[in-house]
Design a protein around this nucleic acid. Structure first.
Lengths: 187, 187
DNA sequence: TCTATTTTTTGATCCAGATCAAAAATTCTC
DNA sequence: GAGAATTTTTGATCTGGATCAAAAAATAGA
């Protein structure tokens, strides 16, 4: 993997550390439909999506799949609590496209954390990226009408409609697929 | 400040580092109504609430205050993006009770990050706590009826009704105050 | 290319919760 | 402790979006 340049600079990493971090990431190509992790499993890795699209979802009490969010190219991704505390995760993560995924095992990261403080700074950054995304999403989604949410998503990430199916996007927005379909048709 | 014991152990900090971290936190007592930060400002600190209650909110387009979330005793709190990237924050943070607040300036933390890798691990942990809280909240709030959200909040944090006013709690839950009042009355 | 399967759209109905308005209760302030 | 200000409750009405059902369109498999 090559670390996104802005991380290197913001986290103030030396060339050497960047090299070390890049080296312990493992590169994989997975097909569409592959699960990075499943509910009940312990998520042992932090992932970085070079290309592709992942969907994080959970199963509600009524049995429906509710999309929690999407992660596209150049994003870090993990089941935060599971990863950090080695507890079973509540959510699934499924790839919606053939994807190139870099992964870093927690145990290896921890080992480097102990001997290299720049590595800790990197870890800080990766979790920060997740937290930021969550906070933005929360503000965006609360108290907006279905149509406003749709417009916000279109503005921020119009390609999502070519990359994920309607039902997934609808549950991400917290509305039904039928409503999303109607909004899109402009009625 | 005394660091919560579980952080010391999970983040695997030495007594010495715990001491150092505790030492650079500043202790303040603020009255109810004080703002830890305001929209448009750069949030320069990471806060830890020893006792008290804070409300993070933003102003929607219609001028209404929308509560994003609450932070009570023994929680870390900051405007993630602003803190990390020194950008103006979009939200306000207001104390709803007289509170004892510990704060740590980013610049000081950064300095320690450079000379002490355990400090970086602590920073990682603090941001992790925020991310976890966000993720849990998101799952809890999506696709639940007003009453389910109310029940979930009551279960998780019943004291909130003695500590924050109804309107704040309602906008936290994404419903109106009137609806919350009716649910509470059991109709 | 034809068929089967999945996904999206459209239609009709209905209800949870919003909105607007005003009364009741609680909390400040001097 | 009386009056003012704030907060909560209650009432009446209305609507955005859910639900259920089925047709149309798109995609995939052989």
């Amino acid at each position: 993997m090559h670390l996104p340049p802005y991380i290197k600079s913001v986290a103030n990493l030396s060339d050497q550390t960047e090299e070390a971090i890049s080296a312990i990431f493992r590169r994989d190509e997975y097909p569409k439909g592959h699960n990075l992790y499943r509910q009940g499993e312990i998520c042992q890795h932090i992932y970085y999506i070079e290309t592709g699209l992942a969907r994080v979802y959970y199963i509600a009490e009524n049995g429906k799949e509710i999309t929690q969010w999407f992660f596209a190219d150049n994003n870090f991704l993990t089941a935060v609590d599971s990863f950090y505390h080695h507890k079973p995760t509540l959510v699934y993560c499924e790839l919606l496209e053939d994807s190139v995924i870099y992964s870093l095992k927690y145990s290896e990261m921890e080992a480097m954390l102990n001997e290299n403080h720049e590595m800790a700074r990197f870890a800080f950054h990766a979790v920060y990226e997740l937290a930021k995304k969550l906070a933005e999403y929360m503000i965006a989604m609360k108290f907006q009408s279905a149509e406003e949410k749709y417009n916000a998503l279109m503005k921020e990430y119009p390609k999502i409609f070519q990359r994920a199916k309607l039902g997934y996007i609808a549950s991400f927005l917290g509305i039904t697929q039928e409503t999303l379909s109607r909004i899109r048709a402009g009625k």
